[in-house]
Amino acid sequence: MSLVGIPNAVEEFSVEWLNQVLPAFDPTLPLVSKCSARASETPGQTAEIVFLELQWAAEDPSDLARLPTKMIAKYTSQNQQVIDEIINVFDQYRRETSFYRDFEAPGLRVPRCYYQAFDPSRQAFVLLLEDLGPAESPSWAISSQQVSLALSKLPALHAKWWNHSLLRDKDYFVQFDDASFFQLGFNAAAQIAGALSEFIEEVSLTEQLMPILAEKQEVMQSAFAQRPFTLVHGDYHAKQLFFETAAGGEFAAIDWQFPFVAQGPWDFARLMVLGLSIEERRAKEQELMAAYHQALVALGVSDYSEEDLAKDFRFGLVISHMINVIAIGSTDISLVAKECSDLGVEWKDVMLYRGQAALEDWQVLPFIKTL
């Protein structure tokens, strides 16, 4: 094994490795007697995924009934461009392993974490997670009903951590006043936006907005600092969500690589805009936003008006679009394009045009210029 405790290839997820790491989760677990490991056929954008099937050296039927026979492992991307341009810059591996170490029950369902490890000297990591099956992710082909359900789960997360001082102590969260992070993000998005027209049509709004965001970074962060904050998933979209199926399972959110301490509507904006067609979003956004606001109030959030929500939603549109622009320019976008095509979805619509339409509808460019 090239890194102690951190596999770097599918075959390194062995019986021996599992029996080394699982006692840290529960020292009463029996030994694993057999394990088969299979790489995901759908490559992750920032990490590799492995499906594990386990057998246990346990004879008591009651023990066998409680033991998981499937697990999911995430480990270091084998794409050096991803490491150089994304992970080394934005530190997702440290952020996600730290999140799973400290937040077992953040306010919405997350996979149980059996083991996590991170080596900062090599930007290497591993997560050993609960298999959420028979729940399934719709990937980019999420339905409007699933979007509504996932949005309805956000108030419990956001209300639980509303202005909670503990969040400000976590250096692995992206804090709303982290000048270095936002400078990197906005500058990268501005640079990438300047080249988008070489391979994507109708990008003028993105070309205009991203450089202005880079110029207005300090002003925007000053505005963030005046807003209430909470725990924000940071990348709350269809591929990160699992839903109950006819066979069972339950809703859950995965991929906590970009947890923010920021405004809750950032999560809301990201899912609603990426998950709904432009027409669906226009038809449903006011109803969905009203339901989100009402749920926050019912859960104890006070002094937060619908006007406050609208302002934070606009900021959320900005952050979501920035993330998408960086993803288009710094990851292998052909993976997203193929996955979308296989699902009958147009990747440019999901990753760019839906966001641009929302930015236009909500007059975000004039809003930013007035800050």
Results as ranks from 00 to 15, higher is better:
206 T>R: 02
111 P>H: 02
26 D>N: 15
68 P>T: 07
207 E>I: 09
325 V>Y: 01
64 L>A: 08
187 N>A: 09
251 F>E: 02
162 W>T: 03
301 V>S: 08
75 Y>N: 12
114 Y>H: 09
244 E>W: 00
198 E>M: 05
259 P>D: 13
188 A>Y: 05
250 E>G: 06
34 K>G: 05
210 M>N: 04
295 A>Q: 15
10 V>G: 00
134 P>I: 05
110 V>P: 06
58 A>Y: 07
358 A>H: 11
210 M>D: 04
100 Y>I: 07
29 L>E: 07
283 A>L: 08
311 K>T: 13
332 D>L: 07
21 V>M: 09
355 G>R: 01
101 R>F: 01
86 I>Y: 14
181 F>H: 14
141 A>E: 10
94 R>C: 05
356 Q>E: 15
66 R>I: 11
296 L>C: 10
229 F>A: 06
83 I>Y: 06
320 S>Y: 00
132 L>C: 10
245 T>F: 11
161 W>V: 08
162 W>D: 04
85 E>T: 12
178 D>L: 08
350 V>D: 05
115 Y>L: 01
317 L>G: 08
235 D>V: 10
32 V>H: 08
65 A>P: 01
110 V>C: 13
78 Q>G: 13
96 E>W: 03
257 Q>D: 01
99 F>I: 03
118 F>R: 09
197 S>Y: 07
246 A>Y: 00
345 V>G: 01
72 I>V: 15
117 A>I: 02
